[in-house]
């Protein structure tokens, strides 16, 4: 159907516009993400970062522009949403685990119920994923019995169980205690090191600087400036970027 190849951007945004009623949240966003890249989106609150990332897996619709994932237009009404969601995993700020299921069941649920895979195979994979996010031994714990950081790592494993090509992280450490932030960031860093394409909305500047291949700074619905972290953090050209960096660094 599409003739997308791995040398083209895996996620491609062109002039994306999105508004809630009268309020324009995104005012022409363009962005290219190559396979295996780690992208961090930073910016003041209310600048449309979360909205942007939610548009990429069609949780929010857009009014104008184009978003393509592996060459597939996301906001095409004929889109096979399941196909998109297999490709794009998402992790939320508030973890959003299913409270009536154990950690293992949370990870297994989507592959078994949505993809109709064999439970035995999925369980092997789910256990391996929980081990990968360093939660061995917590398989039978309910979300309510886990700390915020542990819940967030289960959420990452749950998303990975669908074997996505792109992972979206929406301020995943914003609700965590400072001491548990690190364990989640380490997990994301491991993923990035394995070559997973990651798009992160984050306030962790140190982390962004360390893992990102490319940093985008958004303000009031537009991308003000972007570049590799070394350049971005030291030689910001725009006054708004410099103001923001002065405040957070």
């Amino acid at each position: 159907m599409t003739n997308w190849t791995a040398d083209q951007p895996i996620v491609r945004l062109r002039d994306v516009h999105k508004s809630y009623g009268q309020v324009e949240v995104l005012r022409g966003i363009s962005m290219d993400v190559m396979k295996g890249e780690v992208i961090c989106i930073i910016g003041p609150s209310g600048s449309g970062k979360s909205t942007l990332i939610r548009c990429i897996n069609a949780l929010n619709d857009i009014q104008a522009g184009s978003i393509q994932v592996e060459g597939q237009e996301v906001h095409d009404p004929r889109l096979d949403k399941l196909a998109l969601r297999r490709k794009v995993g998402m992790v939320f700020q508030q973890y959003n685990l299913f409270p009536h299921k154990t950690a293992l069941q949370n990870v297994m649920m989507a592959p078994v119920k949505v993809l109709k895979e064999k439970p035995a195979e999925v369980e092997t994979r789910a256990r391996a994923l929980l081990k990968k996010v360093r939660l061995e031994g917590k398989e039978n714990h309910y979300p309510g019995e886990l700390s915020g950081g542990q819940q967030q790592r289960v959420a990452i494993a749950r998303s990975l169980a669908m074997r996505p090509d792109v992972m979206l992280f929406d301020e995943v450490t914003a609700a965590l205690d400072p001491e548990t932030v690190k364990e989640v960031l380490v997990t994301i860093k491991d993923l990035a090191a394995e070559g997973m394409t990651c798009i992160l909305v984050t306030h962790e500047m140190g982390f962004a600087r360390e893992v990102a291949d490319h940093i985008y700074f958004t303000d009031r619905g537009v991308i003000v400036e972007h570049g590799p972290p070394a350049e971005f953090f030291t030689q910001a050209k725009d006054a708004r970027t410099r103001d923001f960096l002065d405040q957070v660094l």
Binding site: R86, V88, M90, F92, N96, F98, V114, R158, S159, M162
Partner: peptide, 15 residues
């Protein structure tokens, strides 16, 4: 948020 999490994992509305 529970609906969104389910949606992002590909669950249909009925599921």
């Amino acid at each position: 948020a529970q609906w969104e999490a389910a949606e992002s994992l590909g669950f249909t509305r009925r599921q």
